[in-house]
Simulated assay, not measured.
Amino acid sequence: MVKMSNVWDRSTEVLSGRGGMLAGIAIPTLFVPAVLRALWALATAPVPGTAAGPAAALVGGLLAIVIALISLWGQLALIAAASDPATQAADARRLATARFLPALGIAALLVAVLTVLALPPAVLAIQAGFDFTAPAGAPQPVTMAPGTAIGLSLYLVVLGLVILFVGARLVPLYAVVVNERRGIGAIAEAWRLTRRHTWRIVGVLLLWGIVLLIATWAAQAVVGTVFRLALGAGALNVVAFLVAVVGAAVSTVFSVIAIVFTAQLYVALVRRARPAA
Rank of each mutant, 00 (worst) to 15 (best):
L205H: 05
L95M: 11
V238W: 02
T97E: 14
V223H: 05
A258M: 08
L207R: 06
T252D: 01
V204Q: 06
I187C: 02
V202Q: 00
A108N: 03
S153D: 07
L36S: 04
V166L: 15
P141S: 07
R200F: 11
A136I: 13
I259K: 01
L156E: 09
A128T: 14
V14I: 10
T133L: 13
V253A: 07
R274V: 10
A92E: 09
L173R: 08
S71T: 15
W199P: 05
G167A: 13
A128W: 04
A89V: 14
A64L: 14
G234A: 07
R18V: 05
I126L: 11
S83D: 13
L242W: 00
S251Y: 03
A134P: 07
T225A: 10
V2A: 10
I150R: 05
P48Y: 06
V166K: 06
I187D: 00
L109N: 09
L231N: 08
I184S: 12
L269A: 05
R99D: 12
L154R: 03
V256H: 02
A277E: 09
R274M: 08
L213P: 02
G49N: 09
R274P: 04
M1V: 13
A249R: 01
D131Y: 04
V267R: 05
P275A: 09
L156I: 06
M21T: 12
I150D: 09
L236T: 12
F261R: 07
Q220F: 00
L58G: 14
G74Q: 05
A215C: 01
R196W: 07
L213F: 06
L159G: 02
A128K: 03
G151F: 03
L109A: 10
L242R: 00
L22T: 08
A57P: 05
G19L: 02
A277T: 12
I187Y: 00
I126N: 08
R37P: 04
V171M: 15
L231K: 03
W191I: 14
L58F: 13
G24T: 11
A125N: 03
G203Q: 09
P146G: 12
A186V: 04
V256P: 03
T194W: 08
A92Q: 14
I67V: 13
R272E: 15
V267W: 00
P48F: 06
V226I: 12
A96T: 01
A107L: 10
A258G: 14
G203N: 13
G20E: 04
V256D: 00
L95Y: 15
V47F: 06
V202G: 00
P172D: 01
V222N: 12
A23V: 15
I79L: 15
D131P: 05
T29A: 07
L114V: 13
G49D: 06
L154K: 03
T252A: 01
V243Y: 00
V123E: 11
T252E: 01
G185H: 15
R196H: 14
L58I: 12
V260W: 01
V166W: 11
A55C: 06
R271F: 07
I25M: 12
V123H: 09
R196Y: 11
P54R: 06
L170Q: 02
Y266W: 13
E189S: 14
F254H: 01
V157H: 02
G17N: 11
R37N: 15
L265F: 10
P85M: 14
G203K: 12
E180A: 15
